[in-house]
């Protein structure tokens, strides 16, 4: 019903915007965590992304399964030979803080149960978000049991519901996007690791940037239609660029030498597990695709190192050095300044 603020009109948050675009180019990067001050446009950016995403082809079931990939379909779609197809925008679903397990997982459809005496499953937010984004604002304040559940689903790509006499499983391939203010609570390392990229969002310190943001925001709120029309061209360009990058992604070459340097970087930083290295490689490749390069270079690695790795460093509570500084140092050591 309401128009969303155009993505291209967001000023002063380049790292965040870039990271978001890359998750759209390659969903396998695995989501994004944006931590930083309030009122810096985190939520605006995520919600604005929705309007930029290309449409997907989907079956008509509640989980909008992918007709081309039987292994990622729900049981009903897999069994039926023909599908009624439709085109859908990639879903971007908000997970509100107070959401209950029932709302997230799906639950017994009370309405049907009460008025018709039928046992049926009412899909939850995870079903809605299948093949798209699940956005959690204030992710660090989310209750633990919901966090556990999201972790499980994000890792397996499947939602398994065994409750109220229901036994349902359905695909839930979601890109998890979280935002929050770290001063209000930390995130558990397990959850941190599930996010592909992480971005530190800061308040701009330049008056010029502030003025630009404030003016645009004000113009948008006074005349959403007119403002969106002004930016329609840029939006269109970005959208086309994403589609093009998605197509090009598989043809972008990742030389072994680059992979080796990515590994060396991760070893130097002592990141836990392989997920960091994998993400770094994917993010660098998505960046190369987005910029129209044929091959991933050290430069792509360098630019994606901080976003891919900063949330995976072991923290020493008594060490004051920021993660970003440590990464810059390691990048200089491994890749040369």
């Amino acid at each position: 019903m309401t128009l969303r603020y155009p993505f291209s009109a967001i000023a002063g948050q380049d790292e965040l915007l870039q990271a978001l675009l890359l998750t759209a180019v390659d969903p396998l990067i695995g989501g994004l965590l944006a931590f930083g001050d309030r009122g810096t446009g985190k939520s605006t950016a995520v919600r604005a992304l929705a309007a930029l995403l290309p449409e997907i082809r989907a079956t008509s079931c509640a989980y909008h399964c992918d007709p081309d990939s039987p292994s990622a379909q729900c049981d009903a779609c897999r069994k039926s030979a023909t599908h009624k197809l439709r085109k859908l925008p990639i879903p971007v679903v908000d997970l509100p803080l107070g959401a209950t397990e029932d709302r997230v997982l799906g639950a017994l459809n009370l309405e049907r149960a009460l008025s018709h005496g039928e046992k049926s499953f009412e899909p939850g937010l995870l079903a809605q978000a299948n093949r798209g984004y699940l956005y959690v604002d204030e992710v660090n304040l989310l209750e633990d049991h919901i966090v556990d559940l999201l972790l499980d689903v994000a890792a397996s790509g499947e939602n398994v519901v065994e409750r109220d006499g229901l036994s349902v499983r359905h695909p839930a391939r979601i890109v998890l996007v979280g935002s929050g203010n770290p001063e209000e609570g930390e995130l558990r390392p397990q959850l941190l690791d599930r996010f592909g990229l992480s971005v530190e969002v800061r308040t701009p310190t330049e008056v010029k940037t502030w003025v630009e943001i404030v003016k645009r925001r004000d113009a948008f709120e006074r005349d959403p239609e007119g403002f969106s029309a002004q930016w329609a061209k840029q939006e269109d360009q970005t959208r086309r660029r994403i589609v093009k990058a998605r197509k090009a992604l598989n043809d972008v070459e990742v030389p072994d030498s680059v992979l080796e340097r990515a590994a060396a970087l991760c070893i130097n930083l002592k990141t836990d597990g392989l997920r960091g290295q994998l993400t770094l490689m994917r993010a660098a490749r998505a960046l190369a695709a987005y910029e129209g390069a044929k091959r991933v270079t050290d430069d792509h690695l360098k630019r994606m190192a901080a976003a891919s790795l900063r949330h995976r460093l072991r923290r020493n509570p008594l060490d004051e050095t920021g993660s970003t500084t440590r990464i810059t140092r390691a990048v200089a050591e491994v890749l040369g300044a």
Binding site: R38, T40, T203, T205, V207, W210, I213, E221
Partner: peptide, 14 residues
Amino acid sequence: TALALGLSSIRPAV
């Protein structure tokens, strides 16, 4: 003024 007062959120300026 907002910057000089150390505000980190842009919403109040709007």
